[in-house]
Design a protein around this nucleic acid. Structure first.
Lengths: 77, 77
DNA sequence: GCCCATTTGTACGTATGTATG
DNA sequence: GCATACATACGTACAAATGGG
């Protein structure tokens, strides 16, 4: 799902994947998405890259991060 | 102007300083603000921290970055 | 209240890529 | 080709919040 050779930045590719998971219901409203550590494992990307992806989703108000708990899907988004 | 010991994140403190420079006219519309390298020199912060500050300003549409040229103050902002 | 595991946040440094002139 | 400047990505370390025991 992530094309390391492709022209698009990895953090934007990952943001697109996560956005799709929210849209499809794979990640549900008011439930946490995978943790940063889990996403690192799954995609083999650096922590900073994962965080930057999530920053994109936060700026789109698709998710809301809570330190110590997780990153939650915004309801009705 | 930047309080290394203070509670506020350095990138937010720097964003506030730059926002003030724009508001005061120290950085003028359609003119470039200081380069990342110059800001690193002036504030003694890491490059990544400077970039994150500027990301904040970009998200506020106060500036627009152009690779190879600089980061420009948005007119009428 | 205290420790501990989990999780997000911040900051550093470095290297490489890409766009402009 | 070259210099300048922003962009992406990696790795690392520590800080801060949360929740459970």
């Amino acid at each position: 799902m992530i094309d390391l050779e492709g022209p698009d930045p990895l953090y934007l590719q990952l943001a697109a994947v996560l956005r799709e998971r929210i849209a499809s219901g794979a990640y549900q409203p008011n439930r946490p998405i995978a943790s940063v550590a889990e996403l690192q494992e799954e995609f083999g990307l650096a922590r900073g890259t994962i965080l930057k992806s999530i920053d994109v989703l936060k700026s789109e108000k698709l998710v809301r991060a809570v330190p110590g708990r997780g990153t939650f899907v915004t309801p009705s988004a």
